[in-house]
Design a protein around this nucleic acid. Structure first.
Length: 275
DNA sequence: ATATGGCCCTGGTTGC
DNA sequence: TGCAACCAGGGCCATA
């Protein structure tokens, strides 16, 4: 499940490899789900465009596109990976994986491919003549100030874990990093967000930033089918302290890790270390 | 207005 | 051993 660190790793990889390249041909599959923008409009908006820069916004990958004549942005290709999406840079000869929904042929001779078995991912084209640059639904966890972070949860009558997963508050945090940051901050996932003290929220913010930055350093967590733009796996799953460790001893106190369902998601925590 | 729960999807796992 | 039911969860939408 690609979250902020996985999406950041992929965006950086694609940026390194494809910055300055040009899209010369676009092919799309026939399933309708991945397309927020219809394939015909996508093709028209992508072909002939140059890739100026690739960056991450929340859990979205944004490819900034130029018209080929200069360095000004004319459009953005926005990729959301859903649960099982992959954005890969390959040679044209590389075997085409099942569930490949998009293939972009590039002037350099390579291809960018979007593969997504479960089709929870989304592809969108944003024309900057008629729309604003994509800013994401919420605030960036890595750059939000202490005061802004505290303000996000004020008066919220829902569990702190559910609040962390709400992309319109903070974007980029998913199930893994919600559980891991709450463990590192010593906060129970069911605590009501609006009842947390400022000091606890500041501890959560620091824990979240630390865990996200560490995960980016390790190339993300490969728990299901996550791979980066080259198809390589990440290593942060080896650093997980609670996620998918149900029944295993807490690495701090030895108490078995407990699993509950919260906001419809598997939720892992230590009843001793988290209060 | 905000919060909650069901749904979409496929593949891996579990259970009979 | 084989097959079917079940579960995983990000985001969206209907409902409370």
């Amino acid at each position: 499940m690609p979250e902020l660190p996985e999406v950041e790793t992929i965006a950086r990889g694609v940026d390194e490899r494809l910055r300055g390249d040009r899209i010369i041909d676009a092919w799309f599959g026939s399933h309708k789900e991945p397309f927020k923008t219809p394939p015909s409009s996508l093709a028209a908006g992508l072909e002939g465009r140059t890739i100026l820069r690739v960056r991450r916004v929340g859990k979205h990958i944004v490819c900034e596109l130029g018209d080929g004549t200069g360095s000004s942005r004319v459009a953005e290709w926005i990729v959301h990976l859903g649960m099982t999406g992959q954005l890969l840079v390959t040679t044209p000869e590389a075997s085409v994986a099942a569930h490949t929904h998009a293939r972009l042929a590039l002037a350099s001779g390579r291809e960018m491919r979007f593969v997504d078995p479960r089709r929870f991912g989304r592809l969108e084209l944003r024309d900057l003549k008629t729309a604003k640059a994509f800013a994401g639904p919420g605030a960036e966890p890595l750059t939000i100030s202490e005061d802004e972070f505290v303000k996000l949860f004020r008066g919220r009558r829902l569990a702190i874990k559910a609040a962390l997963l709400n992309q319109t508050l903070l974007h980029g945090v998913g199930n893994i990093y919600a559980d891991e940051s709450l463990f590192r901050a010593g906060i129970r996932p069911r605590r009501m967000a609006g009842r947390l003290k400022r000091a606890e929220l500041l501890k959560l913010r620091a824990a979240l930033i630390e865990v996200l930055e560490h995960a980016i350093e390790l190339g993300g967590s490969s728990v299901s089918d996550y791979v980066d733009a080259d198809g390589a796996r990440g290593f942060f799953q080896l650093e997980h302290r609670v996620y998918l460790r149900t029944g295993e001893p807490c690495l701090v106190c030895g108490t078995p890790i407990k699993r509950i369902i919260l906001a419809g998601r598997g939720t892992h925590f230590c009843i001793q270390c988290q209060r």
